[in-house]
């Protein structure tokens, strides 16, 4: 199968994720969209690794996963805290730091 097709899929997934980030308000959904974008990138990296015949892309994909995992832990903790104190998961409601 032509590896370029994987790239198309990665681009599609990334676009879906980006559109989600821009459109949705719910912090959990936003988070899932970000994960989607990260994984789209991972797919692209792995594909490139395959196309170039070396392991660099695979390694970077692992790094991305680790970072994403860490991010999820902290991010979800923040979201849960905000939800507990403000009873809302909408990102538009949390504007306290704005002047």
């Amino acid at each position: 199968m032509n590896p370029v097709n994987y790239l198309y899929l990665a681009a599609l997934l990334f676009t879906v994720g980006a559109a989600g980030v821009l459109i949705r308000r719910n912090a959990i959904v936003l988070f899932m969209c970000i994960e989607l974008m990260l994984n789209a990138c991972n797919l692209a990296f792995v594909t490139f690794s395959r196309m170039h015949g070396n392991l660099d892309g695979q390694v970077i994909a692992f790094f991305t996963m680790v970072v994403a995992a860490a991010e999820v832990v902290i991010g979800l903790a923040i979201i849960v805290t905000i939800f507990r104190s403000r009873h809302s998961a909408s990102v538009d409601d949390s504007g306290l730091l704005k002047l």
Partner: peptide
């Protein structure tokens, strides 16, 4: 220029993208 800092995470995301 202050108007750009509107406090909506999504608008920051737009400028990032």
């Amino acid at each position: 220029m202050r108007k750009l800092q509107n406090g909506y995470a999504r608008s920051y995301a737009v400028s990032m993208f």
